[in-house]
């Protein structure tokens, strides 16, 4: 059974515009992040230790998770969980990319490939743009699955200083 429709395949190569995270990097969110990944290196919290980078910085993988629900967004993403009307036919994998019409419901993270350029400093604005790179159908232990390959670029400040480039594999099954 072919799960990658022509409409889905047509999205390969689609690249979004740059989108800005809803607020600059906050010290408290950097703290929650480095505590979650169990890395309390002083560079993430100390002016002195972070001076090499121009001040305290967020962990290198932070920008990938910095695109949060803005305060102005009244749509609660938890509403409609388990919605019996949800047909599993369309996925929003990035807020700034078009929905992906793949008729499977489950989503898992398959892994990342990161290329790092610089740290995001506390107080900096973060921007991102994304590209659908590829779609591949595979047969898994629990049935068919589609691998969605998305390239994400992250940058800081209005000069768009490169932070990192990510190739993410998402498994839809």
């Amino acid at each position: 059974m072919e799960l990658i429709s022509d409409a889905a395949r047509a999205l390969i190569g689609t690249r979004s515009d740059w989108a800005e995270a809803c607020h600059p990097v906050e010290a408290s969110e950097a703290r929650r992040f480095f505590q979650a990944i169990m890395d309390d290196s002083p560079r993430y919290r100390s002016e002195a230790a972070g001076s090499r980078y121009g001040g305290p910085v967020a962990p290198p993988g932070f920008p990938v998770h910095a695109f949060r629900r803005p305060a102005s967004d009244a749509t609660d993403p938890l509403e409609g969980r388990g919605d019996p009307e949800f047909d599993g036919s369309s996925r929003l994998l990035r807020h700034h990319l078009p929905r992906l019409p793949i008729a499977l419901e489950g989503v898992l993270n398959g892994g990342y490939e990161y290329e790092f350029f610089s740290y995001a400093r506390v107080g900096e604005r973060i921007f991102s743009r994304s590209t659908y790179r590829d779609l591949r159908q595979r047969e898994g232990r629990s049935g068919p699955m589609v691998l969605v390959i998305i390239e994400d670029e992250y940058a800081a400040g209005t000069e768009l200083r490169p932070l990192l480039r990510s190739i993410a594999t998402t498994i839809i099954r």
């Binding site: 979650a36 990944i37 962990p59 290198p60 993988g61 898992l108 993270n109 398959g110 892994g111 990342y112």
Partner: peptide, 15 residues
């Protein structure tokens, strides 16, 4: 979460 486990591994690499 896979990204959580990846982040732990990345932290180890940095250390």
């Amino acid at each position: 979460s896979g990204p959580l486990m990846a982040s732990l591994l990345m932290t180890a690499v940095i250390q």
